[in-house]
């Protein structure tokens, strides 16, 4: 089955991973800007990173027939540094005309601090000003519920925000309804230890349905599995779901969300 991985950090993966994903049926992916494992020292560090996301990764993906899209921002961990964050936010528009950019992301909260909330809000302003889609990271573990509620509060406080243009990521059992009940798109991340397993993700689908929801691997430099979406597909098959029902979650839904971006020019596989 063809699938799309809507959240994966390919800068941290080797070309063999692109190969394996292509063999498993991956035809497109989107790569949000994230934390490199250390705090970058200057806006130029981000400028170089954005070049990698908009120039080099699309080429590596294309070499195995995968279409690569991306999202730009300064991530929540580094958002604690307000002055650097503002420099990055001011620089992001330099890249907004690159053909593989889908919007602003993954913005969000990490430890739910005042500075993180301020920078989230300023990213939201940028997205509104430039009419971009928004991809949101929600915190991990004990911080997730509070952080997701704070994020939804900020989004709902602003009447200019269109929920159908916002994707809230890393939802789990206790946050999926918080996102869905207000009309936002949401995604579950299949990631060992700190996030969701394929079987729990299918449980969540059984509880809330398969509208406006997708799954991703968030494969990065940590212990993660870039072919986690096929594991989810396998779990759905094991439980007896039709190919059409599975395809809606792993292909149709990401396409429907991404097609709202003016730069998304997806080529259907032959």
């Amino acid at each position: 089955m063809y699938y799309i991985d809507p959240h994966i950090h390919m800068v941290s993966r080797v070309t063999d991973d692109y190969e394996r994903m292509a063999r498993m049926g991956c035809v497109a992916m989107s790569e949000p800007a994230f934390w490199a494992g250390y705090d970058r020292g200057s806006v130029d560090g981000f400028r170089d990173y954005f070049r990698q996301l908009t120039e080099f990764e699309p080429k590596r993906a294309a070499s195995v027939g995968i279409q690569h899209y991306t999202w730009l921002c300064i991530n929540a961990k580094e958002a604690e540094n307000i002055s650097l964050s503002r420099e990055v936010i001011a620089m992001v528009p330099e890249f907004l005309d690159k053909p593989n950019v889908l919007g602003i992301g993954e913005i969000g909260l990490n430890k739910n601090t005042k500075n993180e909330a301020q920078i989230f809000w300023e990213h939201m302003e940028l997205a509104l000003k430039t009419d971009e889609l928004i991809l949101i990271h929600t915190p991990h573990l004990a911080d997730k519920y509070k952080g997701t509620r704070m994020i939804v509060d900020m989004l709902r406080d602003d009447p200019r925000i269109k929920p159908e243009r916002v994707l809230i990521d890393h939802v789990e059992e206790h946050t999926v309804r918080v996102a869905k009940e207000h009309g936002f798109w949401c995604a579950m991340t299949l990631y060992p230890v700190t996030k969701c397993t394929p079987s729990r993700a299918v449980d969540i689908i059984e509880m809330v349905g398969n509208d406006k929801i997708m799954v991703n691997s968030a494969g990065d430099w940590g212990p993660s599995n870039p072919t986690a979406v096929p594991d989810f597909i396998q779990e759905m098959r094991k439980r007896g779901y039709t190919e059409a029902k599975i395809r809606k979650i792993v292909y149709d839904n990401p396409l429907e969300f991404f097609r709202q971006s003016k730069r998304f020019k997806f080529r259907e596989p032959a």
Binding site: L141, A142, Y145, K146, E173
Partner: peptide
């Protein structure tokens, strides 16, 4: 999940 979550 809620038991292991911070208060909002």
């Amino acid at each position: 999940q809620l038991l292991f979550s911070d208060t909002y």
